[in-house]
C-alpha cells in the first residue's frame, strides 16, 4: 500500500468511525453509554412516595413508553425500560408470542401499532410491604386491547431499593382491586429480580415472606456443570497460552 493510499484509507476509516458513533448515539437505548465490563453503581432508588424513615431526595421515577408497529396482527419485539441508572423497571417481550390485536371488523380498521407503558405508582398503605414502587404494565392498540400470549421467555425486571439480603419476591396483580400473588422470582443481578410477565397489570417486589411465594433457584448454589465448564475453559486458556508461546519460540528460531 502506498503512503497516499494509506492516508486515504485512514481518512475513510475515520469517517466510518464518526458515522458509526453518530448512528450509535442516535439510536434509542439506555441513556448511559457502557464501555467496560465493570458496572457502575446504580443511582439511589427513586420513589414515587418516599417511605417514612427514608432520608433521600431524588428526582421522580421515570415511566417508560414505546410504540411498536403491528404486522399481520402481531407486534414486533418490545423492550422498554425506565431511564434511571440503572433502570428500576424493564419489560422484555420477545419472540413470536407477543401481542396480537383483533383484526379489522366492519368499519373498524385493524390497529397499526401497539403502545406499551410502564408507569411507576406509590404503594397503597393496604398493600403488603412493598420494596420500592409498583410498576403498572399496560398496552393499548387504538381503541382495542391487545391479547398477550406468554411464550415463556417474556420477562419483567425490577430493581430493588437496595441489594440483597434478604432476597425479594415478585408480586403481581391484574388490577388494583385484585389481590397480590407471588410469582416465581429469579435473581438477575446484584439487586435486580426477574419474573415471567403475567400479563398487563401491577408488578412489585416484597422482602417479607409472602403466602405461596414461589421463588426460582437462581444463585442458590454452584452447579457441578458450572465447575466442569470453568475447568474446561481454564484448561483451554492455559493450552492457548502455551501453544502461542511455543509458536513464537519456533518462529524466532
Amino acid at each position: 500500500m502506498t503512503a497516499g493510499g494509506s492516508t486515504r484509507s485512514r481518512r475513510g476509516l475515520l469517517y466510518l468511525t464518526a458515522a458509526a458513533l453518530a448512528v450509535a448515539w442516535l439510536l434509542p437505548g439506555r441513556p448511559v453509554p457502557i464501555y467496560d465490563g465493570i458496572g457502575a453503581p446504580d443511582e439511589p432508588y427513586r420513589y414515587v412516595s418516599v417511605p417514612p424513615g427514608v432520608q433521600i431526595r431524588t428526582r421522580p421515577p421515570t415511566l417508560a413508553k414505546v410504540t411498536v408497529p403491528v404486522e399481520r396482527g402481531v407486534a414486533s419485539v418490545v423492550e422498554l425500560f425506565t431511564s434511571e441508572q440503572g433502570p428500576q423497571a424493564e419489560a422484555d417481550i420477545t419472540g413470536p408470542s407477543l401481542l396480537t390485536v383483533p383484526p379489522a371488523s366492519g368499519s373498524t380498521p385493524a390497529p397499526r401499532s401497539i403502545t406499551v407503558t410502564l408507569t411507576p405508582l406509590a404503594p397503597d398503605p393496604a398493600d403488603p410491604q412493598i420494596d420500592g414502587n409498583i410498576y403498572r404494565l399496560t398496552w393499548v392498540a387504538g381503541s382495542s386491547t391487545p391479547t398477550f400470549h406468554n411464550n415463556g421467555a417474556d420477562l419483567f425486571y425490577l430493581r430493588a431499593t437496595v441489594g440483597p439480603p434478604p432476597r425479594a419476591t415478585f408480586l403481581y396483580r391484574h388490577g388494583p382491586s385484585e389481590p397480590w400473588r407471588a410469582v416465581a422470582t429469579e435473581l438477575a443481578g446484584a439487586d435486580i429480580y426477574s419474573a415471567l410477565i403475567q400479563g398487563a397489570g401491577d408488578y412489585a417486589l416484597t422482602r417479607r415472606p409472602f403466602p405461596a411465594a414461589a421463588t426460582g433457584n437462581a444463585n442458590s448454589g454452584t452447579s457441578p456443570w458450572s465447575l466442569i465448564l470453568v475447568t474446561i475453559l481454564i484448561l483451554a486458556m492455559v493450552g492457548a497460552v502455551l501453544t502461542i508461546r511455543l509458536m513464537r519460540i519456533r518462529s524466532a528460531t
Binding site: L13, L16, T17, A20, L21, V23, A24, W25, L27, G29, R30, P33, I34, Y35, E79
Partner: peptide
C-alpha cells in the same frame, strides 16, 4: 445485544 452498535462504534474510535 443492545450495546453492540455503541460498542462497535466505540471500539472503532
Amino acid at each position: 445485544w443492545h450495546v453492540v452498535p455503541l460498542d462497535i462504534a466505540v471500539g472503532m474510535l
